[in-house]
Design a protein around this nucleic acid. Sequence first.
DNA 1: TTGGCAATCTGTAACGTTTCAGTGTATTGA
DNA 2: TCAATACACTGAAACGTTACAGATTGCCAA
Lengths: 351, 351
Amino acid sequence: MDRQRTDKNEETAAQGRPTLKTLAFMTGLGVTTVSRALKDAPEIGAETRRRVQLVAKQIGYRPNRAGVRLRTGRTNVISLVLNTDREIMSFVSDIIYGVSEVLAETPYHLIVTPYSRSQDPMEPIRYLVETGSADGVIISRTQPNDPRARYMLEHGMPFATHGRTDMGLVHPYHDFDNHVFAMEAVRRLASMGRRKLALLSPPPGLTYYGHTLNGFADALSEVGASEIPFNAVSIDHSIEQIRSRTAQVMRRENRPDGFVSSAAAATLAIVAGIEDAGLKLGRDVDVVSKQSSDLLHLFRRELLVVNENFRLAGSDLARSVLGWIGGAAPGSLQRLVAASDVQAFSQPVLV
Amino acid sequence: MDRQRTDKNEETAAQGRPTLKTLAFMTGLGVTTVSRALKDAPEIGAETRRRVQLVAKQIGYRPNRAGVRLRTGRTNVISLVLNTDREIMSFVSDIIYGVSEVLAETPYHLIVTPYSRSQDPMEPIRYLVETGSADGVIISRTQPNDPRARYMLEHGMPFATHGRTDMGLVHPYHDFDNHVFAMEAVRRLASMGRRKLALLSPPPGLTYYGHTLNGFADALSEVGASEIPFNAVSIDHSIEQIRSRTAQVMRRENRPDGFVSSAAAATLAIVAGIEDAGLKLGRDVDVVSKQSSDLLHLFRRELLVVNENFRLAGSDLARSVLGWIGGAAPGSLQRLVAASDVQAFSQPVLV
DNA sequence: TTGGCAATCTGTAACGTTTCAGTGTATTGA
DNA sequence: TCAATACACTGAAACGTTACAGATTGCCAA
């Protein structure tokens, strides 16, 4: 009996990666005690606890994720659900960086769960919930009535949304105040004497489409400017579509003298369209655009910009999900980021 | 005995997610048989196999990842290792999309493993290998003598690199032919009468830095043009640094009349610098740039571009790692993508 | 008839972890 | 002195899967 036990432990100790059994053998304790000692359980003697933790650190013990997951059901995984064709480029990497930054200090891994044109957006969510592949989920392209959020709430899956919902259900979110953005943009254009404004909106259906539209409309009436309809396209459309539609609109009699654009890439297309029509940015028309990296001023110095920080969004979303998992009230994990002021180009300090 | 068994199975069947035990109970077979039947093992009767697979599909059975992982050591995970501050923006999302696209059709999940300024690039690699957190790894920012590749090769971890190494070791890679890119760029500039060329290179240290430099030099001597040194900056530098360095160089007596740029964002800075110096793109100087999305022509129509497809890189890298895991020879999983021709702006068809 | 063999199927153990239900020993209160 | 109790620790079982080593059956050759 004693011999067999010794054999078994030596066998274990000889293996590559240390496990609880290895630690138990080295400390002369039972596996249970070691497990408890590592998580600071109260019924373990202070000295034993220290000893175990010391040995664990020395030999570089790391709990086996599969073992923990099988036993507890906890995956230590946060899933970021992404639309792989619609999402605007640099946006995604920033969010991923932000999320990673937060998860790096935790035992959590980030898994990217994609879905594409053909698929129901619910599919990856159902997969995650049904298979229990993650402890928490981050979604974007949030809708006012978002079936994904409702589903996860019903199934007890912690999540955070990039953008708000409007279903009377409470859950963590991170959102940029697009209402204020649109208002400030309009006010700025108005202050420059622009009176006929067009909006290149977010994709209809998403929550911030409404916020943007309302802000735009509110400010229009505030400053007494009027809207030139431009709603056949949104920032989800292709560069070429936006460009040609802009050119079309700019060739009309009653053309806009100001644009508000919800995305930087789309702004490039708007400007191209303006110039296709033979008009000049800054003289015939001004454009206020959101951007997530500071590049638009290089493009045309006449552009007016408002910065939206997606890296911040990512880290915020990650913290929110972790908070919910950790037992915080979902209602306390909501954040609406104020839109910064509209910025014009200022000559950089040359070295 | 019989009663106990029945109880146990009924208990199981009542649970949320179906397991092999559930299937065993429903089919009246043993757990082992069910497991074998699902993976088309030869010693299972044809009818039994069909029956088990039918029931499994009906009740939506999905193998528990933790169970499989614990038992077999296989994680069904591919890890994409990313530098979270240096990587150029849109580049990353494209790669992720490409990888996802391939993994979506497999049982593999994609986990993003970040590392940042402060860290040793080896750290995430060691973590992955030591903890066995992934079955395969994708790395970028590859160096001629890359310790990460060597380490993974030594430890039997399948991987693929974005960019080649030059250590005499064979492993899968995906690379864009930057030698040809640089040559074609120089040739194009030469054909336009440009004779004094500057190169905004990739970061020194990375393998494709050398490829680019060599291609640039080779073509210079071929066409009899000369180089204006511009090697105090690389595409890893900040937009502002590149911009001011460019302006500096352009104000010199012996200024370049042509640029070759290895990245689109950097090209924006180069053009800004050129204009800061009071010169005009297309008249005083021409610029050939790589780009990964078709936006540079919107920026300045005089720009000449070569497209590099990072989404393709991603899917290629994913396929390579899977191939290696699946037993293919690593030497057969290498791909060098030819650089496409230099493209000038052509008026788009307006709708 | 019998031994052998192929064709199917099955129970048990193990992967590493945590939880449950203890076990043994010293300390306390009366 | 004895029971009660706090303290420190422990083995066994379970999570879901696969591999190993059988078990049962029918069939065929000798």
